[in-house]
Simulated scan of single mutants.
Amino acid sequence: MTMMKTARIHEYGDASAIRHDSVPRPRPAFGDVLVRVAATSFNPTEAALRAGLLHAFLPVDLPHALGWDVAGTVAEIGAGVEGFAVGDRVVGRLDDGGAAAEYVRAPAAVLVAAPASVPLAHAAALPVAGLTAWQAVFEHGKVAAGQRVLVNGAGGGVGGFVTQLAAYAGAEVIATAGPRSTEAVLRQGADQVIDYTAGPVGAALDGPVDILLNLVPLGPPDAAALAPLVRPGGRIVSIATPIEPAADSGVSAMHMVARNDVAHLAALVELVDAGAVGIDISESRPLADLAEVHRLSEAGRIRGKVLIVP
């Protein structure tokens, strides 16, 4: 029996709940492929899952292997799988996790060809953050050329893709970010960066915006302060704290949860290979450092996307 290493939680708790286990390498079932993992990437929601904060609507069986994003190479193909061959470079979102490991069994239906223009490990930053950004910008925000878009929380992993996709759509992008993220956000296509640590966002904004894309958890006062920044007839899309505009404002608002969509992921890969979207990797860590990455994220010390390499 061939063994492999994986990062799992056996119980909910703080970052020390993450254990590094040696388990049998899985075999692909019908419709699956076995992927040799080049990297997964860290998403802050995984820290919430580890802590048990998502249990009510995202229950998992324990022990649970972490890692929703995967980029790697097809190592073995299960029965009923077409369109993939051993050695193919693939990327995908694994709704059941498991990519924080040397190998992972993945449904072929959630995988697409990885971008050819970037290192394979870097593609692991795309699925969760990229799909969230794509659906926020195009599906729910309906961002179009000439619109003014406020991206609240552009310095995070999702924020980098949101900024790039909104700029790609031809919008004027106004982004909020802390000082350490300003240069990166400007490189990603923001026309203006507002330092949210320097004072109220509205005080630095020159006129209302058409669309507000909120990517960060907010307290009630901060959420209430953002809503009036959107013009009548505009839209608010939040992936974090719901933001409710005044009933008579004429502003529509929604709170979204991204779904797994291989067509959207394939479109993102095309934009990466075309040079229209870049993948900002802030650092790469070995699997043994996963607990430390969780701690850094919970302390607010993560910028962009962090790769976890087995």
Rank of each mutant, 00 (worst) to 15 (best):
E82C: 06
L120R: 07
T182S: 00
V86L: 07
W134N: 12
T73A: 11
A113L: 13
L120C: 01
A65R: 11
H122G: 00
D69C: 02
L111P: 08
Y168G: 00
R89F: 04
I174D: 00
A175Y: 06
P63C: 07
P127E: 08
P119Y: 07
P59N: 10
T73D: 13
H140Q: 14
L49F: 08
G153P: 12
E76L: 09
Q147F: 00
D69N: 13
P63W: 04
I77R: 15
A101W: 04
A125N: 11
E102K: 09
L58C: 10
A123L: 02
G92F: 12
G156E: 05
V118S: 06
A99R: 10
P59S: 13
G159Y: 05
T182N: 00
D96M: 14
A99T: 08
G67N: 04
G160M: 03
A48H: 14
D69P: 04
G98M: 09
V91W: 10
D88Y: 10
G178M: 02
H64G: 03
G153K: 07
A101N: 09
E172W: 13
A171H: 10
V90I: 10
A101Q: 06
V151F: 04
H140C: 05
R50P: 02
L58H: 15
V110K: 05
G98D: 04
V185W: 07
V81F: 01
E172F: 09
Y103D: 12
Y103P: 00
V81S: 01
P44C: 04
G52D: 03
D69Q: 05
W134D: 14
V118W: 09
N43D: 14
A125D: 11
G83H: 05
A75E: 15
G155N: 01
L53Y: 14
